[in-house]
Every structure is written in structure tokens, then in C-alpha cells.
Amino acid sequence: MPGKAAGKATPMINVILDIVSWILILSGTFFVVTGAIGLVRLPDVYTRMHGAGLVDTLGAALFLAGLMVQGGFTLISVKLGLIIVLLFFTSPTSSYALANALRSQGVRAQAAGEDLPEEKAEEGSTSTPS
């Protein structure tokens, strides 16, 4: 599959594309594994959302960009770009929905020093002044 354009082009460009793809895929894997470790070890739901956001944004984008370099100018790269755009819009939306559900249920963030018990009780009833 990567040898599709190797008949006409020089092999130097293939080596460069392989190196770029290695760098992108390995850095994407690094961010995905880092986000998963943060998902296990962080102490709170809000801080675990930070780790999940690391997986959703930078890890997925770098990984799929590395696959796009490997795919070349084909329909595969178009579909991978569609996946990147879709994750770019749906991941903050689902994170916002989860955080909104957490705030409306009155779940307290213990890592941010929010240890005041009465302030959060009235926070759950008031809505945002839109």
C-alpha cells in the first residue's frame, strides 16, 4: 500500500514520509497512553475529564494525522480527515454535557479546594444567566 507511488517518485520522499509518520503516530500514542494513565491516577471526576480530553483532542488528532501521511492522496485520507473533524466537534460537546450533568447533580470538585459545603448547595439550584 505505501509502494503505490514508488514507481515514479524517488525513494527519498518515501523515507521522509515514513519518518514523519513514525513521529506523528508515536507522539499520538504517547498522548493517548498519558491520558489513560491520568484517567486511572487522577483523584477527581473533573480532573479525570482533563485526562480524557487529552486523549480526545491531541492524541486522536496526531494519531490520525500520522495515518493520513501514510495513506497519501486517496479517499482514505479524506475519511480520516472527516474523523478528525467529527472528533474535533463532538468531543468538547460531550465533555460539556458531562460537566453540566456533574454541576447540576451537585458533585463537588475536591481537587480545586472547593470544600465549602453550603456554597455548592445553592450553586446547584441557580441556572446560568444566559
Binding site: 484517567l39 485526562g51 480524557a52 486523549v55 492524541g59
Partner: peptide
């Protein structure tokens, strides 16, 4: 909510 967050995150990893 931890489990919902993990389901969303594992879904993204499954896409990759």
C-alpha cells in the same frame, strides 16, 4: 459519571 467518561474515552480509542 466516571464510567460515562471512561466509555467516551474508550470509544475514542476504539475509533483510533
Amino acid at each position: 459519571y466516571d464510567r460515562v467518561l471512561v466509555v467516551n474515552s474508550i470509544g475514542t480509542m476504539t475509533v483510533l
